[in-house]
Design a protein around this nucleic acid. Structure first.
Length: 827
DNA sequence: GACCTGCTGCGGTCTG
């Protein structure tokens, strides 16, 4: 490409009254020189950038040496634009088409996800448009076509929008593998990513580019972001625990009434249902002006809500992360976050949903649901000011995604082992893939591994006489294309009115607890359950205002380290009497009770509390490391204490700390924490950490759950044909069958190893657990025997999570039960 | 005196 076309490009923009920013010029310059990179786009919509990039390519195409006069300019795909969401693809397509008359009148600009008619697909199969907007899944599908290579032969540039959303998960790995393939076909390929603010932008660039050289361009437009807190009117009477936060209902309703369109973010779907219902009850005149939006509602319902937001018809929408991304809702003026945002990145993302136009600022208001969240709010506001934002880690060589990719490539023209290995290692996540691991994956798709040799449906890929691996059977190819992707969703039950219109879906377990005639709250309405037929629950509208609320078994996100540290820092200041912010002044009375009865946990000192109650002996410890670390830590300590003296513990955790409870109130195990500094160090040792963690938790059961997802991605378990979903139970049965077969007959199966690794790394956050142990060993323990639960301890006592761990000998247990019986029976 | 968590995203077949 030739840089002399940069000035005309700028003139082109200027003629349309579009401002050109210095960082934009930087991207153009770099891309024209054939460089790849990452643009840190802290503000602005991807679709605007799409126009910039298309303009750049167009200028370059015009600059290329003219084709012989008689010939038409060559057609074919030039720019591939990847977005993580279909809604974004549609939005970007619209923006590009609006400028296409001026930009490139003879270019076709299409989206692969927009028009999925067979005519459109056939046209694209013959000849791709010059600009194609699509998703990671669709790109993989294209790579699975036999003629894939020729479709991409003219490709100049790939841009990955919202890369921060993809890089940390398996969808991002899928993108990495696809890019490695495109780069191999087209070594000059220019790849750019657009990313929101992350704690590790350089790494984000490296992951995208497979470690190859690239630039990082800083988008200079820094949006003003205002974060504040809705302080409870009577902080002293605000609950010490709880997550629903309906005490704030009136205050929230007043906020909504006093401002323009508002998004009300909730952390869970059932919470959103309850808030929507309660807001309507508090302001009946808002019927039709407020709406509900979450991932289990039917697409048609959600589309209606999104349109209403866009057109400015709605005053407020109560939602979950379903509205984190997606098209821009210009009218949104305010964002409310009910309960903990759990992380700074998420908070900024949500804040950015408001004031979505140049020059306008974003405003987010935190709504605490219990007292300690005031502390989190104070920390969050500070962290936002300092832009202390979480990093994202790319998964490390997930073999399920690799196995899927092998079949995709075998379908898309076939591969030779050594060549594909080299290509795969060009993807960041597989840069350290070992030869044995490669051989294992190859063997797995060729024979199904050791234990499945007898089953032809697992011989998915076979080498021909020339050593080219291909898929030998059409049916296998069809099945594979139907299950491409890394998103595994649980089978759920459709909810429909008797007349047939769809409302959404709930989990099977919830419906199975309902009897005919029972009422439940879903989609913002009270429904009466009628019957279940073929994975569909039929309902009718019900009168009344009460009903059970469906619970969905979703992910459990822990408080991020950044936010936890920010909260702990606020405690450090409070310990020295510094209460500078409104949040901290509101929580002051509570923290003073905490200090009076015990002490404040601070970054330099671990607080341990002990309490005797009717339930037994409690120890509370507050490392502020997030709930998943606390689960591992609590189980580990219980295990290590149990090694010294047989005991049985109940465990409770939250994001701030954990509780160990032993029913034996007279036992002296708790005093281990009260010994002179050094005695507890052995408990906090990170020696034999892995063994102890595995021994202390039911790791097999956790792995089995993980394995369900892995089996789906690796293509072991087929989700069923559209319109006839297998029930949850069927899916579980087949994946657990594989799990058992592998464990018994194929212990070296690397998918099993991967399941265990994912549990340790993602569910228990072993790395963070190790860091926490190191911190705990270095800090002094401040030990307090208290007469009653402190504010921090109370929150733990009401946590419902109770995990039994018993290293106690059966006889001791029976003796204890007898003692209790005698006590209960009286003299 | 206080309480009752758990997100999001995509894709596809067959017939005549």
């Amino acid at each position: 490409m030739n840089s002399r076309f940069l000035p005309p490009l700028e003139a082109w923009f200027a003629a349309r009254g579009w401002q050109v920013f210095p960082f934009q010029r930087e991207v153009w310059q770099a891309a024209q020189e054939g460089q790849s990179g990452l643009l840190h786009a802290s503000t602005g919509a991807g679709k605007t950038y799409a126009v910039w990039f298309a303009a750049l390519l167009r200028a370059a195409a015009l600059a290329a040496p003219a084709a012989p006069a008689a010939r038409k300019p060559p057609r074919g795909l030039r720019l591939l634009w990847l977005t993580p969401m279909r809604a974004l693809a549609a939005d970007t397509l619209r923006a590009l088409q609006e400028s296409s008359a001026m930009l490139a009148p003879d270019w076709r600009i299409e989206s692969r996800t927009g028009d999925t008619s067979s005519a459109a697909r056939a046209r694209q199969a013959r000849q791709l448009p010059e600009v194609l907007i699509t998703t990671p899944e669709s790109l993989s599908l294209m790579l699975s076509q036999n003629a894939a290579r020729s479709q991409f032969e003219r490709l100049d540039m790939v841009v990955v929008d919202e890369w921060h959303e993809l890089m940390g998960n398996k969808r991002g790995v899928q993108v990495q593998l696809a890019l490695a393939r495109l780069r191999r076909w087209q070594p000059q390929l220019v790849v750019w990513g657009l990313s929101a603010t992350l704690g590790n932008l350089e790494r984000a660039r490296d992951v995208l580019l497979g470690g190859a050289h690239g630039v990082l361009v800083e988008g200079a437009l820094r949006k003003q972001i205002l974060v504040d807190t809705l302080i409870p009117e009577h902080p002293a009477r605000f609950p010490w625990a709880g997550h629903l936060g309906l005490q704030m209902l009136e205050a929230v309703a007043r906020e909504i009434a006093g401002h323009g369109a508002t998004l009300v973010f909730c952390n869970t779907r059932s919470q959103a249902e309850l808030w929507y219902q309660n807001l309507l009850a508090a302001r009946p005149d808002w019927a039709g002006l407020i709406a509900l939006h979450h991932g289990s509602l039917d697409k048609e319902v959600r589309d209606w809500v999104e349109l209403g937001l866009k057109q400015g018809r709605l005053r407020a929408v109560v939602c979950t992360s379903s509205l984190d991304l997606g098209v821009d809702f210009l009218p949104v003026e305010r964002v409310l976050q009910i309960g903990s945002a759990k992380g700074i990145a998420r908070l900024l993302q949500r804040a950015g949903r408001s004031g979505h136009a140049p020059g306008r600022s974003s405003r987010l208001t935190l709504v605490p649901t219990h007292s300690l969240e005031l502390l989190e709010a104070a920390g969050a506001i500070q962290a936002v000011k300092e832009r202390d934002i979480e990093a994202r880690r790319a998964p490390d060589k997930p073999l399920d995604v690799l196995v899927q990719h092998l079949v995709t490539v075998a379908l898309g023209g076939g591969f030779r082992s050594e060549e594909l290995l080299e290509e795969v290692r060009g993807a960041w996540s597989y840069r350290a893939l070992g030869d044995e691991e490669w051989q294992w994956a190859l063997d797995f798709v060729a024979r199904g591994g050791q234990s499945l040799i007898a089953y032809p449906e697992y011989r998915r890929v076979l080498p021909d006489e020339e050593g080219v691996y291909r898929v030998p059977d059409q049916a296998i190819g069809r099945r594979h294309r139907m299950s491409i992707g890394t998103i595994v969703s649980d089978a759920s039950i459709q909810v429909k009115f008797l007349r047939g219109s769809r409302i959404g879906s709930v989990e099977e377990s919830f419906i199975s607890r309902l009897k005919q005639g029972d009422h439940f709250l879903f989609g913002g309405r009270i429904l009466e359950f009628v019957r279940v037929h073929e994975m569909t629950a039929y309902v009718r509208r019900a009168s009344g205002s009460r009903g059970a609320v469906p619970r969905w078994q979703g992910g459990k996100m822990p408080l991020s380290s950044e936010l936890a540290h920010a909260a702990l820092e606020q405690l450090r200041r409070a310990a020295t009497g510094e209460y500078a912010s409104a949040e901290m002044r509101a929580i002051r009375p509570l923290l003073e009770i905490q200090q009076r009865w015990s002490a404040l946990p601070t970054p330099g000192q671990t607080l341990a509390e002990s309490l005797r109650s009717r339930e037994g002996r409690h120890v509370f410890i507050y490392p502020f490391a997030g709930r998943s670390v606390h689960i591992g830590l609590a189980a580990l300590l219980a295990y290590r204490l149990g090694q010294r003296k047989p005991a049985s513990f109940s465990i409770a955790v939250n994001d701030y700390g954990f509780e160990l409870l032993s029913a034996d109130a007279d036992s002296d195990w708790a005093e281990y924490f009260d010994l002179p500094h050094g005695a507890e160090v052995a408990l906090f040792s990170s020696e034999h950490l892995l063994e102890d963690v595995l021994a202390s938790l039911n790791a097999a059961e956790l792995s089995q759950r993980r394995f369900r997802e892995i089996a789906r991605i690796a293509g072991l378990v087929f989700g069923g044909y559209p319109g006839q979903p297998k029930s949850q139970r069927q899916l579980q049965a087949s994946s657990s069958l594989f799990f058992e077969v592998f464990r018994k007959h194929d212990a070296g199966n690397l998918l099993l190893t991967q399941a265990q690794r994912e549990v340790l790394e993602q569910e228990l956050e072993l790395g963070r657990l190790r860091v926490t142990l190191d911190e705990l060993r270095q800090r002094a323990v401040s030990w307090h025997e208290t007469a009653r639960p402190t504010p921090f301890g109370f929150a733990l006592m009401v946590e419902r999570f109770r995990e039994k761990l018993s290293t106690e000998k059966l006889s001791d247990r029976i003796a204890r039960m007898l003692r209790e019986l005698e006590k209960a029976a009286g003299p």
